[in-house]
């Protein structure tokens, strides 16, 4: 792919992201997944950890924000292709010259980026209603961690979406995948508290490394090497995810055109 195409597709990605946000503004499920549910989780955790101090409050803010990111990835990005099929727009999208994975990337970018709002909401909640004076210990590294987290989540979403389209049996487990990842990725408490045998599962989850980077840079408690290592792994996972996604999309687009499942009618 040459520079001209990269610029062209980046422009398309931004337009898709803009239109996705506009389209989702009135979707009450998105409001629930991105704002209400993380807020409820934050309230619950803040009450439970009330006596633990400011560092724990910041952990909860970031952790509940991550729950919003994961829920958005699972339900919005995961269903991003299926939703187009249900609404009858999938045929139109597949019939344009822009590669379909570029379109889904733009849609996922919008979903994940807007779910960052859940972190802002949790922060405001902790500061206004629980009286915590919160600050981010390493702001620049935190921003870099957020950007890498978005990239890692969007890339991970590109694998989930075609799998949900092709294998409806997997999609039926969608709800069951929500809370286990909250736990296994250490969003709200360290995975050291979990049984030893769960650790390898956490290590292969990009959200776990996102949590390490975000928690580490907000509290400043983690050594720099640990944050850099988490960044590196998020990048590696993203590149591997994008490679797998490109294969999955090619296979899915061929399969749906053979099986005639682009439309539900």
């Amino acid at each position: 792919m040459n520079i001209r195409n990269i610029i062209k597709y980046w422009r398309v990605t931004l337009t898709v992201a803009e239109m996705t946000v506009r389209h989702q503004l009135n979707d009450s499920f998105i409001v629930f997944a991105v704002l209400i549910q993380p807020m409820l989780i934050a309230i619950l955790a803040l009450f439970m950890l009330k006596e633990k101090g400011t560092d724990y409050a910041m952990f909860v803010v970031v952790g509940s924000g991550l729950t919003g990111l994961w829920s958005s990835l699972l339900f919005v990005s995961g269903n991003s292709i299926n939703v187009e099929r249900w609404s009858g727009t999938l045929e139109t999208l597949v019939g344009v010259p822009t590669p379909f994975e570029v379109i889904v990337f733009g849609k996922n970018l919008a979903s994940v980026a807007q779910s960052l709002l859940s972190m802002v909401v949790s922060y405001a909640l902790a500061a206004l209603f629980f009286g915590y004076s919160l600050h981010v210990d390493q702001p620049l590294m935190f921003i870099a961690s957020v950007l890498l987290t978005v990239f890692a989540f969007v890339s991970f979403g590109l694998i989930i979406a075609p799998i949900f389209v092709m294998y409806r049996g997997v999609q039926q487990w969608q709800n069951a995948l929500e809370f286990p990842v909250y736990i296994l990725a250490g969003f709200l408490f360290p995975i050291a508290l979990l049984p030893f045998w769960t650790v390898p599962i956490s290590y292969v989850l990009p959200p776990y490394w996102a949590a390490i980077a975000l928690h580490g840079t907000t509290t400043g408690a983690a050594p720099l090497e640990e944050t850099f290592f988490a960044w590196g792994l998020m990048l590696v996972f993203s590149i591997v995810d994008l490679f797998i996604a490109s294969r999955l999309f090619k296979f899915m687009l061929y399969k749906v055109r053979v099986d005639a499942t682009l439309d539900t009618e």
């Binding site: 062209k8 898709v16 344009v96 010259p97 822009t98």
Partner: peptide, 9 residues
């Protein structure tokens, strides 16, 4: 239309 124009490059 702006959306689809973008998708058609």
């Amino acid at each position: 239309l702006r959306y689809f124009a973008s998708l058609y490059g």
